[in-house]
Design a binder for these strands. Structure first.
Length: 198
DNA sequence: ACATGGATTCGCT
DNA sequence: GCGAATCCATGTT
């Protein structure tokens, strides 16, 4: 069962927390890469000084103001693509960054994808950290703007509820964000091995 | 056209 | 905990 557009239409902070434990799936040429989402972060509107939306609407970030359930994939450090899902109501900027997952299907394909980059080391943890996750799942700029809640979408989140403890901390890599840098908008599954940083 | 910087990763201390 | 590597795409001329 795919997560719906109405699920993503909520406040990104709520979506980020609720996303934990669900399954991220990418179907490529009839092969599936899937993994349990173990770590997320939420980014808000122009009041969030860590969000791309803080500069107002630009060509790159306009999608953040668009409808929920769209994929926002952008390039960073000249090296990686990061995978986000647009949240909240249309017109209100918001997104959730998928930071880590525990691969459950398509491990070999994920390894092949990781091997395409000389900047990652291939080890047991195939999708820890947003750069590696995007690479492992084969998500890049071609998937930007893709809708993940339609019936025929190749990328989607599958509902998977189970019991675990959630840890909330400050987001990673946003020291520049002044008073917003300590907002507890990063969520991860307690005691999970795939978390990028403690 | 072009200068700039970054929601990272890895390896060393 | 820190810093280098690395380079594309964005945002601004």
């Amino acid at each position: 069962m795919k997560l719906t557009q109405s699920f993503f239409s909520q406040d990104p902070t709520i979506v980020a927390e609720k996303l934990l434990g669900n399954i991220l799936v990418h179907e490529i040429n009839n092969q599936r890469i899937a993994g349990i989402i173990t770590e997320t972060e939420s980014y808000g509107d122009d009041t969030d000084l860590a969000s791309h939306a803080r500069f107002g609407v630009t060509e790159r970030n306009k999608i953040m103001f668009g409808k929920a359930g769209l994929l926002y994939v952008y390039h960073i450090y000249g090296i990686f693509y990061l995978t986000n899902i647009i949240c909240d109501q249309k017109g209100k900027a918001g997104a959730v960054l998928i930071r880590s997952a525990q691969i459950t299907e398509g491990e070999n394909l994920a390894k092949e994808n990781l091997a395409k980059s000389k900047f990652v080391k291939i080890n047991q943890k195939l999708a820890t950290g947003p750069g590696k996750l995007s690479l492992a799942f084969g998500i890049d700029k071609n998937n930007n703007f893709e809708e993940i809640t339609t019936q025929n979408s190749n990328i989607y989140i599958e509902r998977n509820i189970f019991k675990f403890d959630t840890i909330k901390t400050a987001r990673i890599g946003v020291d520049y964000a002044k008073h917003c840098k300590d907002n507890p908008w990063r969520f991860y599954i307690k005691d999970n091995e795939t978390i990028s940083k403690k």
